[in-house]
Nucleic acid binder design. Sequence first.
DNA 1: TCTGGGGTCCTAGGACCC
DNA 2: TCTGGGGTCCTAGGACCC
Length: 431
Amino acid sequence: MKHECKVFALVDINNCYVSCERVFNPSLNNKPVIVLSNNDGCAVARSQEAKDLGIKMGVPLFQIKDLVEKHQVRVLSSNYALYAEMSRRFMKILSGFVTPQEQEVYSIDECFLDLTAYAEHYDLTEYAHTILQRVFRWLGLPVCIGLGRSKTEAKIANHIAKKNAYFNGVCNLVSMDPCSVEELYQSIEVGEVWGVGRKHSKKLIGMGIKSVMDLTMASPELIRKQFSVVMQRTVLELQGISCIELEHAPQARQQIVASRSFGQKVTELDDLKEAMSLYVQDAVSRLRSGQLLCGCIIGFAQSNPFDSSKPFYNKSLSYALTEPTDNVLLLTKIATSMVDGLYQKDVAFKKCGIVLTCLESKDKHCYDMFTDMDKIAESDQLMDTLENIQHKFGKTKLALGASMLPNRTWKMTRNQLSQNYFRWDELLAIR
DNA sequence: TCTGGGGTCCTAGGACCC
DNA sequence: TCTGGGGTCCTAGGACCC
């Protein structure tokens, strides 16, 4: 029995970004708090108090201005450097409970654990409580944990733990009696299931499948016909058949994207080029830190899709390299010349970006006999030097072309940014 | 006035080849 | 003039996730 049934746990930080901010700024406790997306555009994280006010996920700030004022909602810009460091520590703590093969870092605030092997010697509900308490004591972050026979079940268990205070943060569906599970499943909308988004949710409801219970009872074959193998897997997983494996090693990346919306509209060709060259440098630094080469680069630029007074402009161009590369000079040159083709007079640009694709591992790449290896070595050395200088003195000291000049009108707005408490010059001061 | 960014996977349909 | 069918590859678009 024990060997037939797997047990997965999903550990998820409650209101992650808000909780991270609260660790360093306790005055935010017990108050409605929201964290905004880039450009201070939308609410991407909300404290429980903010959720209770009816602030929805992803709602634009300007639409809730009155609510924010009336209830004195604390509004923060997103501080990803801070959240990334907290996330790293969170994952580290979890790694103390399982082997590396049993841990999957799923996102910045979520982690799957395969607890199958621990079922023999531990009560897994208690084991989960121990995990929850350690994360809170060591890091100050509140988490909820869901346990199930598949990752999808663990996800829904986590949802249940979050919604019902009765569970004290841990919901174990594996040990729960079937009648209680059924009752819970009947009370949860089908759209809450991992893998069921807005579109599919609507279609399912049209078919009479409204609750998690309805989807669990559906025929996998029928679902496959109406949707795809992905949804079929979801049904099987809800039935307790694990189809989605734990991925303890991060899988090979398919693409690297760097793009931003502009703080203001951009109409000048040079501004667009400057932004593009900045994004290329961002993407290439991620490419190189992953020891990858890219074989194809795609550039795109678009107007504001929400502006109904003008037609939406969205153009992309791609360029296949004859030899995969990680050379930032070459890639910047290609991308900026691409902008000539993307640019159009009279278009107010709202966003642009680049995608690096056809990625391959640098150490596995075979160069052909015509490749000038000296040139490659030379460019590697140049890249290393550039990165060392940027690492030592900051990214604004040495960069390519016109990028990173201060006070650019199109730069991202982040008016409510908290400190990065992990930097020496931004340490928290206790007075 | 003001609406994020970075990913993955699947499918349908067209081009092309034999 | 009539003109098959099966396979593969690529791409665009759509759905989902956080």
